[in-house]
Design a protein around this nucleic acid. Structure first.
Length: 620
DNA sequence: CTAGGGTTAG
């Protein structure tokens, strides 16, 4: 009977199917069979939800430690909602129930795994709490098992975690080769190559993984000659060793050495071929990438498909990316995973094609693909870029593990839809939840102010960014602020801000100020911009042309003539601006002052009426 | 513990 039920459970495909089997378990009095309980938890977590699985566990009579560990394990890599049920509440439950169950080594390793990839301040603290529990329960000193789990956890937090990791390492009574490898990897990640090598040289015994970690670490730190030397010297290489070295070369853009090594491989690994595909893709050589992709035949993995799809996306070949995705679905040998979908969703946002986007969203639902945080982010962005802001909002509200990118995407989506006040409200909501805005978020929120003409709010935020959050403004932040000030008439302040920067103003900033001259006809600003540009870029044809045009547009004909004269004498010529537009199936290309297109002026008029600032982007 | 693919702004 027990085996029969287990078989039924494992074959459950639908919720109804599961519930029928669950009922059978009650009827047959197997409710308290711990082996069945374990399977019940796994299957219900997969088919229904983590909350449901947790309720199954809580309502069972005498769950053992394995049941609790299984439950915690289900949370690994899931998008659990930290505010309701989470792995910590499972742990608490285990210690507070009537029949207290003692956690074991597995409990702690699973708990740590749940939090290692969240990479937030919060999870480091949760980890330290788990560490505290480990100490309280008595460290299992018979092996390096728990110690390694702690080392691995702390090693994910960069310089924040190094101190804790060292302490664990020093206090471990039993260390194995994994403990040393983890420490080496951690120091390599922090850029401390010297210490990593010192550990490597002083460790009692090395495994292939040790050597591979050193190769990878050296490659991460740009030391390929050293990595190559280690590769040549190592006593025994495996497939991964080759993969490590090849992807090291690729990370540094050295396709030549990567290709040469791949040729030398006794049996070309799928991983290395896939890495080379994305190497080709990153330099825009999709033809070579596709050739390699085609040559791999049935050896292709999901990652291979993903590499090829994102290669097309990097080259803005979005239709090709989508058709490769369709081919992948039809081919059926590799199931698209959530990374495939992040790519194709982003292809839809670039295309602005709601039809395609909706189809992908439907595909995700139909195939029960886990909507991870990055996939949710991509969906929010896609719906917004395709004009369906309501769907963006609904995805956003459904996501329980929002990261800073989630909030940033939603804020800028609202902004481009003209819902600027709402964007600011959302920003404040995020801050109120204790999430620190980053530099990208400030670009998003400042440009929301820009879209909405919210001068006062913009100034406050800009100051907050510098003083409250200690973020050094980048050129893009200044660009937003200067544009905001200049367009809404505070020209003096715009100049003052430009002056106060310790960065060189770029084309966007000069363009912004020149545009403001055009709009406001302000002669003081005109003098300023002209003087600065001529001082700093006396022979940059783009600026000179703009200033010449500007001079005539504000009625300073003598200046315009003088500049034009000077440019001729110096032999300065502006490279004609170029842009293209797609009408139906045809791509029309325009070169500035080119009159060969009959419809050119019509299109320009249309574009200008659509977006008064368009010329800023195409003409500079 | 080591290798290959992904999301935000401008």
């Amino acid at each position: 009977m027990e085996h029969e039920i287990l078989r039924l459970l494992q074959n459950c495909k639908t919720i109804n199917h599961f519930k029928q089997t669950h009922l059978q378990i009650f009827i047959n009095g197997l409710k308290n069979n711990n082996f069945i309980l374990q399977t019940l938890i796994i299957v219900s977590a997969n088919i229904i939800s983590l909350n449901y699985a947790f309720n199954v566990l809580r309502t069972s009579n005498s769950p053992d430690v394995i049941a609790y560990n299984t439950m915690i394990k289900c949370f690994i890599g899931s998008n659990n909602n930290p505010t309701t049920y989470n792995p910590i509440s499972v742990y608490k439950q285990m210690k507070t129930r009537e029949f207290v169950v003692s956690p074991n080594s597995f409990t702690f390793t699973f708990l740590l795994k749940c939090f290692e990839n969240l990479n937030m301040n919060l999870s480091l603290n949760v980890g330290r709490m788990i560490h505290g529990e480990v100490m309280k329960m008595g460290f299992d000193v018979s092996s390096a098992f728990v110690g390694n789990a702690l080392l691995n956890f702390y090693s994910k937090f960069g310089s924040e975690g190094v101190g804790y990791a060292c302490k664990v390492f020093d206090e471990m009574l039993v260390r194995d080769v994994v403990s040393w490898n983890t420490m080496i990897g951690m120091y390599m990640d922090c850029g401390d190559v010297g210490l990593a090598i010192k550990l490597f040289e002083s460790m009692p015994e090395r495994s292939v993984v040790t050597w591979n970690s050193v190769i990878t670490g050296l490659a991460k730190n740009g030391k390929m000659e050293h990595a190559r030397k280690v590769f040549d010297e190592m006593p025994k290489r495996n497939e991964v060793s080759w993969n490590c070295l090849i992807s090291g070369y690729l990370k540094l853009g050295d396709l030549g050495n990567a290709e040469a090594l791949l040729d030398k491989m006794p049996v070309k690994s799928v991983v290395a071929c896939t890495a080379v595909i994305s190497g080709y893709a990153s330099i825009g050589d999709v033809e070579s990438a596709r050739k390699m992709f085609d040559s791999m035949g049935s050896k292709r993995t999901v990652v291979t498909w993903n590499a090829m799809i994102s290669g097309y996306i990097n080259k803005s070949m979005f239709d090709e990316a989508l058709s490769l995705f369709r081919l992948m679905s039809v081919d059926g040998k590799c199931k698209p995973d959530h990374i495939t979908l992040i790519s194709v969703v982003s292809a839809c946002s670039h295309l602005g094609s709601l039809e395609n986007g909706k189809w992908i969203a439907f595909y995700i639902n139909k195939n029960k693909i886990n909507v991870s945080t990055p996939l949710g982010n991509a969906l929010i962005d896609m719906f917004a870029k395709c004009g369906d802001i309501e769907s963006s909002k609904s995805i956003f509200n459904q996501m329980c593990n929002k990261c800073i990118i989630t909030w940033t995407t939603m804020v800028s989506s609202l902004a481009v839809h003209g819902m600027c006040k709402e964007a600011l409200t959302l920003f404040n909501k995020m801050c109120a939840q204790g999430i620190k805005p980053d530099d990208v978020m400030f670009i998003a929120v400042l440009s929301a102010c820009n879209h909405g003409g919210l001068v006062k709010e913009g100034k406050t935020l800009f100051n907050q960014m510098i003083h409250k959050y200690a973020i050094k403004p980048q050129i893009a932040h200044y660009g937003c602020m200067i544009d905001l000030l200049a367009r809404f008439g505070d020209l003096d302040e715009a100049i003052r801000l430009t002056e106060s920067m310790d960065l060189e103003p770029n084309a966007v900033i000069w363009g912004t100020l020149i545009a403001a001259c055009k709009v406001h006809g302000n002669s003081k600003l005109f003098e300023y911009v002209t003087k600065k540009v001529l001082d700093q870029e006396p022979s940059n044809p783009s600026y000179l042309t703009s200033i010449t045009n500007l001079s005539s547009s504000v009625g300073r004909w003598e200046d315009a003539l003088r500049f034009r004269q000077e440019m001729r004498e110096e032999g300065i010529e502006k490279v004609p601006g170029c842009s293209s537009i797609q009408i139906g199936d045809n791509v029309h290309e325009f070169v500035a002052r080119d009159t060969s297109h009959m419809q050119r002026s019509d299109i320009y008029e249309m574009l200008e009426s659509l977006n008064g600032h368009l010329w800023l982007q195409s003409d500079f």
